[in-house]
Amino acid sequence: MKQISVFLENRPGSLFLVLKKLKELKVNLRAMSLADTAEFGVLRFIVDQPEVLIEKLKQEKFAATLTEVLAVGVEDRPGGLCDVIEILTQAEISVEYLYAFVVPSKEEAYVVLRVENLEKATALLKEKGITILDKIPV
């Protein structure tokens, strides 16, 4: 699945500017996370048509990039995420970052993962019967 990341300066209003642009473009955020350091932040999010949106953002001169990430279904129970991470840990695949989201109509929870070796991780998780999403279900 493709995720969009936008570079933000750590100052009041920079998040607002991106969100305002998304509102103007009538883009619905399906999942998102905001990472920050003392000086800058990275806003990451999933939308329905990332390839279309990224071009529009670049035209507006946002520092934005597309990243291939893994979105997996996780059983909504204690230890659900732990079981997924365990599979990756055993294969010594490290996780750069992750964030979770839910879809009201579904019973599973979902986790977006950025991992070192995407192909290997995908194959491994599939093999263990974990749901891998191509896009976010409605």
Partner: peptide, 18 residues
């Protein structure tokens, strides 16, 4: 200013650049 085409998604890459 960071160049849009070289912006990396990963915080650690940006920190390394800095």
């Amino acid at each position: 200013e960071v160049a849009p085409e070289f912006f990396s998604d990963e915080v650690k890459t940006l920190e390394k650049l800095k």
